[in-house]
């Protein structure tokens, strides 16, 4: 005779099964679509200089620096289909770095480097919003990624 009621036992097993299904789905997306959390990098001062680097036609590196109350670079131009590595840090307080409608969601922290990779398959303007309270100007802190839209980047802008 078991001590705990048999229905309670079944409930525990059902809960375990649901959680196992979630776990499997998480791992499946991680394996098949490389969908993952930000990558962990050791600190290096090199990332504190904002810049966009073109590695090849469809691969870009962005060193994004958050500071009260702006992102640098504030406009990033890439062609459709490019894969972009974002390296993010902060010059002062904690900021957020969230590319809306993309799975780019990172904290920008002084003395720390955060990294994620994302592919832009569709043209458009992707807003980058600071989503961590960073002082009185927090609500104005936005930047954008412009993907082939409305035109190619003006030639005088650094890429």
């Amino acid at each position: 005779m078991s001590l705990i009621d048999k229905t309670e036992k079944r409930v525990m097993m059902a809960s375990g099964a649901v959680l196992a299904l979630f776990l499997f789905s998480v791992l499946y997306a991680k394996g098949k679509y490389k969908s993952d959390l930000p990558e962990c990098l050791p600190y290096s001062k090199a990332y504190e200089t904002p810049k966009v680097t073109k590695l090849d036609d469809s691969t870009y590196q962005v060193f994004a620096v958050a500071q009260m109350w702006q992102f640098q670079p504030s406009e990033i131009y890439v062609p459709v289909g490019s894969e972009v590595d974002f390296f993010v840090t902060s010059k002062d307080v904690v900021h957020g770095f969230n590319i809306l409608l993309k799975n780019v969601n990172m904290m920008a922290i002084y003395g720390n480097i955060n990294k994620t990779t994302v592919k832009f398959d569709k043209p458009g303007v992707y807003k980058i919003t600071c989503h961590e309270y960073c002082g009185v100007g927090h609500q104005n802190m936005q930047a954008q990624v412009i993907v082939n839209y409305p035109t190619e980047p003006p030639p005088n802008l650094p890429r």
Binding site: M12, S15, G16, L19, F22, L23, V26, D36, L37, P38, E39, C40, L41, P42, Y43, V88, T89, G96, N105, M106, M107, I109, N112, I113, N114, K115
Partner: peptide, 24 residues
Amino acid sequence: QFSDPSIERGTKFFAGLLTYGVAI
């Protein structure tokens, strides 16, 4: 701290796993 820098993915994954434990 899933979105934080400087904490490795494995450490975060383990925390997520344990969080499933607290759902039971």
